[in-house]
Amino acid sequence: MATSLTVVLPGDEILQDALPTPTGKKKTLTLGPGLRHIPPNTIATTIAGALATDNRKNAAWIEFNSGRYIPTTGDLVIATVQGSAGESFNCLLSPNTPPAALPHLAFEGATRKTRPQFPPNTLVYARIVSAGKDSAPELTCVEPSTGKGDGLGQVKGGMGFKISLGMARRMLAGSKGGITLPEMLGQKVGFEITVGRNGILHVDGGSVKATLAIGRALQEIDEQALGEKAQKKLAEGVLKSL
C-alpha cells in the first residue's frame, strides 16, 4: 500500500501521474470510496481526505475517518435486530437509517421449520450481500458458496462498544492496521472480540471486568491513536487490573 499523504478536497481532479500505474495483469482502473469518474476521462474527488493508491490492484481511493457508515457489498457488520417482518428480520446498521433485511433462512442450518427466533435488540454478525443506492441493504449469516456460518450469526454475551469507522477498518485489516493489543492480551487471558465495519466492536471477556477493560482499552487506542509501544504499555496496565 503506497501511502504518500496527498490531501484532497472535494472537486479536485486527480491527475494522470497521481493515479496508480498498473503492474499486475489488471488493466482497468478501480475507483474506491470518495472518487468519481466524469466522462470522458476525468477522475474527481467527492470527499476530503488523503489519496491512496495500489499499483498491484490498479486501484485508487480516498482514506478518511469521519461521517456515517455507508453500507458496501461484502462488508462484515454487527447489526441490531429490530423486529421480524414476513420472511426476514429488520436490522439496523446505524441509527436513523433505513433497515437492512436479513432473511430468516440466511443462517447456517436454517430451514422453514427451524428458523431462528431473535427478540428485538439482538446483535447479529452478518455480511452485506447487496447494497446499492437504489435499494435497502441485504444481509446474510452464511457464506453463499459453502453454506456454513463461518463465525457469522448471533453475537452472545459481552458488550458492544462504539469505535470509529477507521478503527474498525484497521482491526479488520489484520497486521496492516497496527492493532497489536488483542494479541498481547491473548497470551495471558481468553476473550472474544467481534468487529463490525459499521463502527461497532463487541467484546466478550468472560467477566464484566475483563469485558470492560478490553473494550475501553481498544476505544482508547482509537481515540488517542496509540502506536505499538503505547499499546504494549496499555496491555500491561490492563493485565495488571485483571
Binding site: L5, V7, A48, G49, F64, G178, A225, L226, G227, A230
Partner: peptide
C-alpha cells in the same frame, strides 16, 4: 486556508500510522 484546515483534519486521522 480551507486546504490548511482539511490538511489538519487528515493529519489527525492518519496520525496512527506514524505513532509509536
Amino acid at each position: 486556508w480551507l486546504r490548511e484546515v482539511v490538511k489538519r483534519k487528515v493529519e489527525l486521522e492518519q496520525r496512527w500510522k506514524s505513532a509509536r
